[in-house]
Amino acid sequence: MNLSLILLAVFDGVSYAALVFMVAVGLTLIFGVLRILNVAHGSLYAIGAYLTASIGGAVVAAGYSPILAFPLMLIAAALVGVLLGAPIERLLLRRIYAKSEVLQLLVTFAVFMILEDVQRLVWGNQPYFESSALQLLGNIQVFGVYYTSYQLVLLPVVALLTLIGLRLFLRRTLTGKLITAVTEDREAARSIGIDADRVYLMTFVLGAALAGLGGALASPTTSVLPGIGAEMIVLSFAVVATAGLGRIEGAAVAALLIGLGRSAATYAMPELQVLVPYLIMLAVLLVRPEGLFGTPAARKI
């Protein structure tokens, strides 16, 4: 394998990692605050993708400029956060915070099953493919190989901005500080008068919107079809667990690790490609059970 091939593999890995990170970051944020591993996160990702692809397709078909696809992605993400995230937290999760971990997980599993069918009822079984946003940005040629600017430049930039934005939001704004406080110590935060219910709701809506945004961003690069949520959720589980639950920066590193590992496998041993994320996860967890950046739990979970 020569240098240019290695670089090609790196480009592919980074662009893939960017997409995975966008989904995983919402998952880890929700876990950090609510202590719930949201299985339905995959469905929210899928719905974000469906919304963007179907509305985007209609907008372009109606003769409007494909540049509208970009604001549409944000709108789709907001819709997922507000119309799905908010009711899920308020109507379902709020009732089960006191219950055992298993029940919490299963509630989100049930929501996942329901949303899988809802997607099919709304969007049918035929795949959607709407890539005008990606075509708009054109191609870049590297070592004689064409890459789309969307995947090579835009996705990593958006992922990076999300990471920095989230960091600033959590450290610099009041709402963000409240969220951080609840993440660090739920009981203490409550005792100093933080409205934990509100923080939970905001976090969940934000996390859900991030899943929706991940889906929206992925939609121009892929066919949107039933089942994409189920694949994505296990992959983001792997990222989140590798990183350490609730670790946002860690999720970025883990996504990068998994993305690079996966593309290296495609070049060297294509047959191992699907195994790579789980092997990385297993290897990390066996050495550091709390994940790369996790801290050992202070109290018994």
Binding site: L8, S15, V145, Y146, T221, R262, P270
Partner: peptide, 14 residues
């Protein structure tokens, strides 16, 4: 059902 073939396409382009 793989959602993305970018890596395979890069490899084939090379």
């Amino acid at each position: 059902g793989a959602p993305d073939f970018s890596t395979e396409i890069s490899r084939l382009s090379a």
